[in-house]
């Protein structure tokens, strides 16, 4: 009895109406012109709750075109609920080709990771940002934080790092690690692990940040300096892991701990699932890799 609708005619291309996209593109352009500056924008209600990536989705919807290839990751994985549903959303409303392959994607929307595979010029990385203001937990007043950005008063940011060292003997901030962009604005790189901070520095890809609930957009243009804050005697360091990925044997990548059973069994595996699968397809394997071969690249045509 079901009559399949041929298309969802009531929605504009990429869900948002053209006026909204225009407004968001203006905010993006301003963000690119002033790297690291948080541009206010009129964030729209999206068909998903705040905190699920409404900012990132709006940015993606505003820049995506019919020829784009979209990849969506959530904590590095292509197969989690958030990533799958956002990918399905754009497949439906923009009819774009979606992929899990980092290298062939033109737009990568991400929650909390930067892919291990180096990004190239022409690619756009769209971050979902929960709290764009790096000074927020130090100074609750928005009027004051905006003034501090305007006057470049960033001593307070180091107070937080000082507190870390005083309490833990080292800078214990591991994610949302504050950075200074092009020597001017201090920026929250969204809750990516600080492991990914060096990847932002002079990246050939354009990096856009969207915070839907907080109604802010900011950007790091390609080949822009992104320097993690630190002390002279406590320099910035990324996390290191004392074992390789249990599935693909990769080293110098960001690993997730996965609990295997109720008896304390666990393993460390690549957080970037695409990277891990590619390596296994290439014949690398770690000490816990199953014998069966996984299908690697999954590129699905538009609906």
């Amino acid at each position: 009895m079901t009559a399949q609708p041929t298309e969802i005619a009531t929605y504009n291309f990429a869900y948002l109406d053209e006026q909204t996209k225009r407004m968001i593109r203006r905010a993006i352009l301003k963000g690119i012109a002033i790297p690291g500056y948080q541009v206010p924008f009129a964030s729209r209600e999206m068909p998903m709750p705040y905190g699920w990536g409404t900012g990132g989705v709006q940015v993606t919807a505003s820049i995506i075109g019919p020829d784009d290839v979209l990849k969506v990751i959530d904590q590095g994985a292509d197969d989690t609920t958030n990533a799958v549903s956002i990918r399905a959303f754009f497949k439906k409303v923009a009819k774009v080709v979606v992929t899990t392959d980092t290298a062939t994607a033109t737009i990568i929307q991400t929650r909390h990771r930067i892919p291990e595979h180096p990004l190239t010029a022409g690619q756009v990385l769209v971050f979902q940002v929960p709290i764009p203001e790096p000074l927020r937990f130090l100074e609750p007043r928005e009027t004051e934080t905006r003034k501090m950005h305007a006057l470049e008063e960033y001593g307070l940011m180091h107070v937080k790092l000082y507190e870390d060292i005083a309490r833990h003997g080292r800078i214990a901030t591991t994610y949302a690690y504050p950075v200074k962009v092009e020597g001017r604005y201090v920026m929250d790189p969204s809750p990516t692990p600080k492991f990914d901070n060096p990847k932002m520095h002079r990246s050939p890809a354009l990096q856009l940040f969207g915070a839907g609930r907080e109604k802010r957009i900011y950007a790091v243009p390609p080949f822009t300096d992104v320097v993690s804050l630190d002390f002279e005697d406590h320099p910035f360091e990324v996390q290191t892991f004392d074992q390789p990925c249990a599935l693909c044997g990769a080293e110098n990548v960001y690993l997730d701990e996965v609990i295997l059973d109720d008896h304390g069994g666990h393993m460390f595996v690549c957080s970037d699932t695409d990277h891990c699968e590619k390596r296994r397809a290439d014949g690398h394997h770690g000490h816990l890799a199953p014998e069966t071969h996984l299908a690697s690249e999954k590129t699905e045509p538009a609906e």
Binding site: G155, L156, H158, V159, Y162, E163, I165, E232, H234
Partner: peptide, 21 residues
């Protein structure tokens, strides 16, 4: 909400001191 040491050090960091020790 920040330690006594950081309270004293804040002004130093605000004027560009970047050596924890």
């Amino acid at each position: 909400t920040v330690s006594a040491g950081a309270n004293v050090g804040e002004r130093l960091m605000a004027v560009g001191d970047r050596h924890y020790g």
